[in-house]
Design a protein around this nucleic acid. Structure first.
Length: 107
DNA sequence: TACATGACTATCC
DNA sequence: GGGATAGCCATGT
Protein backbone atom coordinates (compact mmCIF):
# COMPACT_ATOMS: atom_id res chain seq x y z
CA UNK A 1 0.00 0.00 0.00
CA UNK A 2 1.19 3.42 -0.88
CA UNK A 3 1.86 6.04 1.73
CA UNK A 4 0.31 9.48 1.79
CA UNK A 5 3.63 10.93 0.77
CA UNK A 6 3.85 8.77 -2.33
CA UNK A 7 0.29 9.55 -3.34
CA UNK A 8 1.02 13.25 -3.04
CA UNK A 9 3.96 12.86 -5.35
CA UNK A 10 1.97 10.96 -7.96
CA UNK A 11 -0.80 13.54 -7.78
CA UNK A 12 1.75 16.21 -8.41
CA UNK A 13 3.06 14.41 -11.46
CA UNK A 14 -0.39 14.47 -13.01
CA UNK A 15 -0.33 18.25 -12.73
CA UNK A 16 2.44 18.41 -15.29
CA UNK A 17 0.93 19.32 -18.70
CA UNK A 18 2.06 17.78 -21.94
CA UNK A 19 5.21 19.09 -23.50
CA UNK A 20 6.48 20.17 -20.10
CA UNK A 21 8.98 18.70 -17.69
CA UNK A 22 9.95 19.28 -14.09
CA UNK A 23 12.55 18.18 -11.63
CA UNK A 24 12.50 16.15 -8.46
CA UNK A 25 13.55 19.21 -6.54
CA UNK A 26 10.61 21.19 -7.93
CA UNK A 27 8.21 18.50 -6.82
CA UNK A 28 9.76 18.41 -3.40
CA UNK A 29 9.49 22.16 -3.18
CA UNK A 30 5.85 22.05 -4.29
CA UNK A 31 5.14 19.54 -1.55
CA UNK A 32 6.91 21.90 0.82
CA UNK A 33 9.62 19.39 1.55
CA UNK A 34 13.25 18.82 0.75
CA UNK A 35 13.00 15.10 0.38
CA UNK A 36 14.11 15.02 -3.21
CA UNK A 37 15.36 11.52 -2.56
CA UNK A 38 12.01 10.41 -1.26
CA UNK A 39 10.30 12.08 -4.21
CA UNK A 40 12.45 10.17 -6.66
CA UNK A 41 11.81 7.00 -4.77
CA UNK A 42 8.07 7.60 -4.75
CA UNK A 43 8.00 8.48 -8.44
CA UNK A 44 9.84 5.30 -9.27
CA UNK A 45 7.33 3.23 -7.36
CA UNK A 46 4.23 4.66 -8.94
CA UNK A 47 1.69 1.82 -9.25
CA UNK A 48 0.14 3.38 -12.35
CA UNK A 49 3.11 4.19 -14.53
CA UNK A 50 1.11 4.85 -17.73
CA UNK A 51 -1.22 7.13 -15.84
CA UNK A 52 1.41 9.03 -13.99
CA UNK A 53 3.61 11.04 -16.35
CA UNK A 54 6.74 10.05 -14.50
CA UNK A 55 8.60 10.48 -17.75
CA UNK A 56 8.09 14.22 -17.42
CA UNK A 57 10.31 14.25 -14.40
CA UNK A 58 14.01 14.84 -14.99
CA UNK A 59 17.05 15.70 -12.98
CA UNK A 60 17.96 19.20 -11.89
CA UNK A 61 20.59 19.54 -14.59
CA UNK A 62 18.17 18.73 -17.40
CA UNK A 63 19.17 15.12 -17.87
CA UNK A 64 16.61 12.35 -17.94
CA UNK A 65 18.17 10.58 -15.02
CA UNK A 66 16.67 7.13 -14.74
CA UNK A 67 13.52 5.39 -15.77
CA UNK A 68 12.21 2.18 -14.28
CA UNK A 69 9.62 1.73 -17.01
CA UNK A 70 9.86 -0.58 -19.98
CA UNK A 71 12.72 0.35 -22.24
CA UNK A 72 14.35 2.50 -19.62
CA UNK A 73 15.74 5.83 -20.71
CA UNK A 74 14.96 4.97 -24.30
CA UNK A 75 11.23 4.88 -23.64
CA UNK A 76 11.48 7.96 -21.47
CA UNK A 77 13.03 9.85 -24.32
CA UNK A 78 10.43 8.57 -26.79
CA UNK A 79 7.58 9.66 -24.56
CA UNK A 80 9.02 13.12 -24.18
CA UNK A 81 9.68 13.52 -27.88
CA UNK A 82 6.12 12.47 -28.59
CA UNK A 83 4.98 15.37 -26.45
CA UNK A 84 7.22 17.83 -28.22
CA UNK A 85 10.12 17.74 -25.80
CA UNK A 86 13.28 17.11 -27.74
CA UNK A 87 15.97 15.07 -26.08
CA UNK A 88 19.56 14.90 -27.15
CA UNK A 89 22.30 12.76 -25.62
CA UNK A 90 20.03 11.99 -22.68
CA UNK A 91 19.43 15.65 -21.99
CA UNK A 92 16.39 17.85 -22.46
CA UNK A 93 16.74 20.36 -25.27
CA UNK A 94 15.80 23.86 -24.13
CA UNK A 95 15.23 22.38 -20.72
CA UNK A 96 14.52 25.72 -19.09
CA UNK A 97 11.85 26.43 -21.70
CA UNK A 98 10.11 23.12 -21.13
CA UNK A 99 10.46 23.40 -17.39
CA UNK A 100 7.12 23.48 -15.63
CA UNK A 101 6.64 25.47 -12.46
CA UNK A 102 3.79 24.20 -10.28
CA UNK A 103 3.30 27.55 -8.65
CA UNK A 104 3.11 29.39 -11.91
CA UNK A 105 1.07 26.78 -13.71
CA UNK A 106 0.74 26.70 -17.46
CA UNK A 107 -1.01 29.99 -17.68
C1' DT B 1 14.49 -0.32 16.37
C1' DA B 2 18.48 -0.18 13.43
C1' DC B 3 20.85 -0.51 8.92
C1' DA B 4 21.07 -0.02 4.10
C1' DT B 5 19.37 1.82 -0.29
C1' DG B 6 17.32 5.10 -3.72
C1' DA B 7 14.26 7.42 -10.78
C1' DC B 8 18.46 13.27 -6.23
C1' DT B 9 20.97 17.74 -5.16
C1' DA B 10 24.59 20.82 -3.75
C1' DT B 11 29.33 21.50 -2.28
C1' DC B 12 34.35 20.78 -2.24
C1' DC B 13 38.88 19.91 -4.32
C1' DG C 1 35.26 21.07 -15.70
C1' DG C 2 35.23 16.22 -13.60
C1' DG C 3 35.12 13.05 -9.67
C1' DA C 4 34.08 12.21 -5.07
C1' DT C 5 31.59 13.27 -0.70
C1' DA C 6 27.91 14.93 2.39
C1' DG C 7 23.04 15.96 3.16
C1' DC C 8 18.44 15.10 2.75
C1' DC C 9 13.73 12.23 3.70
C1' DA C 10 11.20 8.12 3.09
C1' DT C 11 10.93 3.16 2.19
C1' DG C 12 12.20 -1.67 2.62
C1' DT C 13 14.39 -5.48 5.05
Amino acid sequence: MATEFQKRVWKTLELIPEGRVTTYGAIAAYLDTKAVRAVGSAVGKNPKAPEVPCHRVVKADGRLGNYSGKGGQTTKRRLLENEGVMVKEGRIVAFEEHFFDFEKGDG
